[in-house]
């Protein structure tokens, strides 16, 4: 499951490139493009979370905070101070990385439930700041008037353009992460996941790697937040609350924690569920997520990515039965 072939990468890039045109050409599903942009924004976070949780085995319930920090820094600096949005994305990325480092040093010393609680507390504190710092964030009323992004003087003003901006970033993040997994660093992360004491006895700086990957995932979440701000153009603290952190968790659990593809599949499915398929549930939406999480953990502990493998296993069993 860990080895990711060149072929699968090319197939993935091809799907990313072709997908929007299919939706574009069929009017009945043309709004799917909009959902796919959100899916891409989620993917950026879940790729980082997959490395942090699935590979290194460190739980975080506070990643909505880094997403929010990215979004608000981009929003505030572009609207209130008129800075170049790309510079703002960079500033946001450094600030998020720095905060992740400061938070990571003490919290990553914790294990299991305590780490979950530590990151959860961080997420809640950040949410309160978004809510209360009305002069900057607009508080519960939100902040609007965020401008669209421009690339080399060309405005990214259509969904199609924004789709490619977001998803090409996802492709870059994915390729980077795939390389990472299949390297010295990836092996060290997976070693930490199974046995910290054995990893450190093999010369792996356990604390150092935990912090590095925490910072890396925070940076991805921050970029994602900046893209979100420039896409939706209006920020409200509830987009960055505890429930969103949990939703991120559901994404990677549903897709499959032990594979980077799981992060992508989970993000896309949850995006479609929350913007399209679960609309009929209204306020019972949360209930539906709970049910999904429950069903996946019971019946598919390795997530949806394990489905094709299980399926072919069953077919092989069936075939060998027929032969016998």
């Amino acid at each position: 499951m860990f080895h990711i072939t060149i072929k699968s990468r090319i197939v993935f890039i091809a799907i990313v490139l072709i997908c929007p045109w299919i939706f574009y050409l069929i009017p009945a599903v043309s709004h799917y493009l909009d959902i796919l942009i959100f899916a891409g924004i989620y993917c950026l976070i879940t790729i980082g979370l997959s490395l942090l949780m699935g590979y290194a085995g460190q739980i975080s319930l506070g990643h909505a905070a880094f997403f929010g920090i990215g979004a608000y820094i981009s929003g505030i600096l572009t609207t209130k101070y008129g800075l170049n949005p790309w510079v703002c994305i960079l500033i946001a990325l450094f600030v998020s990385g720095f905060i992740a480092y400061c938070i990571g040093v003490p919290t990553l010393k914790l294990h299991g439930h305590y780490l979950a609680m530590g990151t959860l507390a961080f997420g809640i504190i950040t949410f309160i700041i978004f809510n209360e710092e009305i002069t900057y964030t607009g508080g519960p009323d939100g902040m609007g008037n965020i401008k669209e992004l421009q690339l080399l003087g060309f405005p990214i003003d259509t969904n199609m353009k924004y789709y490619y901006l977001v998803w090409l970033t996802v492709v870059l993040a994915l390729l980077f992460s795939v390389n990472l997994i299949q390297s010295r660093v990836g092996r060290a992360l997976r070693a930490i996941h199974t046995s910290e004491v054995a990893a450190s006895s093999m010369g792996v700086n356990v604390a150092g790697y935990k912090i590095q990957i925490f910072v890396f995932s925070a940076i991805l979440a921050s970029i994602s937040g900046s893209f979100y701000a420039h896409y939706i153009k209006f920020l409200n603290p509830t987009s960055f609350d505890l429930f969103f952190s949990i939703k991120l968790l559901i994404m990677i659990v549903m897709g499959g924690m032990r594979s980077i593809w799981g992060a992508i599949i989970g993000a896309v499915i949850i995006a479609f569920l929350s913007f399209e398929w679960l609309g009929a549930f209204h306020e019972f939406e949360t209930l539906a997520y709970g049910a999904i999480l429950l069903l996946v953990t019971i019946f598919l502990p390795d997530g949806l990515v394990s489905l094709p493998g299980k399926f072919s296993e069953q077919i092989n069993k069936y075939l060998s039965k027929i032969k016998a």
Binding site: N179, L180, S183, V185, R187, M202, F216
Partner: peptide
């Protein structure tokens, strides 16, 4: 691990 030098950035960029 100890006698390798690749880090997060160089590994990611392969």
């Amino acid at each position: 691990h100890s006698h390798m030098s690749a880090n997060l950035l160089t590994s990611g960029l392969s």
